[in-house]
Write a protein that binds this DNA or RNA. Structure first.
Lengths: 316, 316
DNA sequence: TATCCTTACGGAATTCGTAAGCATG
DNA sequence: CATGCTTACGAATTCCGTAAGGATA
């Protein structure tokens, strides 16, 4: 048994049991993958993969039990490398973050500035993706840290921590009838066509829930992934916008008015997530604290060991 | 990085950083070990071992962090094999138990009989050792199950479960003055020379504690590891014996009398232990239930996953 | 001086890629 | 008939043992 074989098995599961794809992503010949997997199965004395004729179609019964342990082994192997880097490249290295447009554009710049001051030699890689994709990337260990308001804490292989809360606001052109109302109501908003986030992005779910609970039908004429696009369409007169409050900049967004809407929609909690069982290097832990300053040391400890059990926390 | 390198590191720690011994126990040449360890260190970019000149003397700072993870990886690799065996050799295989003389001689025969009936093809290997050795053997994964009244639950890498409780008794020749007393007292026992277990064996600690608490000095003239030896010396008139109650057989031990002493010494709890993080095959779980029939299913579940966290229990 | 680790080199074993063959949808 | 897995074989790489050298207690 060797680690290469375990990696092939993991990748085969991820690639839906297509060994040709496995071979391509791991830069190896396809017969090599076949042979190694067969050898692993021979050594273990069980078939890991269900086969229909020559094709692999799924996991066998033993396979279903083996794969999670294989995943854990490979996570730990990665942890070994991370721990070593912690010492060898003290304040150097790569740190990759997957996040949504909203966080990357409005929440992270300040954080990144302080981080870069403290760790000038760490290369920060910001990957923009959808909340679902972010959760997947974290779970697979493709990025160190994920940050998103949605989906992140739904994934079983991701451990999350609340980073900060924020509220929605309504954005209208300054000559809009709503621009001067004292207190905004859901009914008032529902009168107008709405431009807001796509489903699954930046608290969109909270918006829909609020109107649904009030029994109101809304006319969403346009959806976008980011507030910049939304504001552009509001400016162009397509409707009124509902965005994250921090996406509004009074100076830059001249011609638009922001109306507080925190009392209308549930408060949103943006969460930060890491891979369960993963290990966070020192500068990654520091970044977590910059993003979520209210985190207690105990939380952070648990977090940086990827939410392992007590016993295993000690071990790391 | 490969598993061989990790095994070398683990063994080096176990063998007190003597690579020559590592080479011998793993049946490989000594330069091979040196080279592989150096290559692992090169790849990780840190030194795992502290060196004085050419000799290894201990773990470095990174080494101390890496070793527990390495141990976990190797445990999981072993788990993979065990899980596979669970399927491939359904009711076949090896099951090794480390236990003291007392358990092997008096508690286990009945259990082994039922087990063999249920699993005739499983080869049972009984290793006799001291409680400390048993704990070590379990922790290292040299045996599947350990059983002992002492020391077992002191080891951090062993998870234990109570198996059964038992009491001590006093054994005297039938013509001894104590043979006919109504209720035995510690004072009465302390009058005579005593033959009993060695320190660290079969509840000896409880015996010492009882006399110490009563402020009595006792004259232990002879100690042994097993009750058969103790009884032989009692018969030969060296003194009165204190043994485990179940070690007395009225038929076989003709000429001796057993006096109940449960009211004098703390009740003993024999525990059964497995390696933390280890995986128990089906027949091993069944053996645990035969030994400790009062175990709840929930306890057993936790036990057979070696006391891992909830998340990891699911995984197995 | 005996023990223990490292370096150097040659042979053995393993791994890996190419090419050809065969099954599946 | 295009996709996907297996088998076969030769090349390349890696691994491992022996032998010699050097450091430590």
């Amino acid at each position: 048994m060797n680690l290469t074989q375990l990696r092939f098995v993991r990748e085969a599961v991820r690639k839906n049991f297509n060994l040709t794809e496995v071979a391509n992503t791991l830069y190896i010949s396809q017969p090599g993958v076949s042979k190694q997997i067969k050898e692993l199965e021979d050594e273990l004395g069980v078939e890991i993969f269900e086969r229909r004729g020559k094709r692999l179609t799924g996991l066998t019964d033993p396979g279903r039990q083996l794969v999670p342990v294989i995943e854990r082994v490979l996570t730990d192997i990665r942890n070994l490398k991370q721990i070593a880097e912690q010492f060898s490249k003290q304040d150097h290295g790569q740190l990759s973050i997957a996040t949504t447009h909203t966080q990357a554009r409005y929440a992270l710049p300040a954080v990144v500035r302080s981080f870069k001051e403290r760790y000038p030699k760490v290369h920060l890689a910001l990957h923009q993706a959808s909340p679902q994709q972010i959760a997947e990337m974290v779970a697979r260990g493709e990025v160190d840290i994920g940050m998103s308001t949605e989906a992140l804490d739904r994934h079983p292989d991701v451990v999350t921590l609340p980073a900060y809360s924020w509220e929605h606001c309504v954005v209208v052109p300054e000559d809009h009838p709503l621009a001067n109302v004292a207190t905004l109501t859901l009914d008032a908003i529902a009168e107008y066509p709405i431009v807001t986030y796509e489903r699954g992005f930046t608290g969109r779910s909270k918006i829909d829930e609020a109107f649904a609970a009030a029994g109101l039908e809304i006319d969403v004429v346009l959806t976008a992934i980011d507030a910049d696009v939304i504001k552009a369409y509001v400016e162009a007169g397509f409707g009124i916008g509902i965005t994250a409050s921090m996406a509004f900049d009074p100076v830059r967004d001249r011609g638009l008015v922001r109306l507080p809407a925190g009392h209308l929609f549930t408060t949103n909690v943006t969460r930060i997530g890491v891979r369960r069982g993963g290990y966070l290097r020192g500068f990654a832990r520091d970044l977590v604290q910059l993003i979520a300053p209210d985190t207690s040391i105990a939380d952070l400890e648990r977090f940086s060991n990827g939410g392992r059990s007590d016993k295993e926390e000690e071990a790391l």
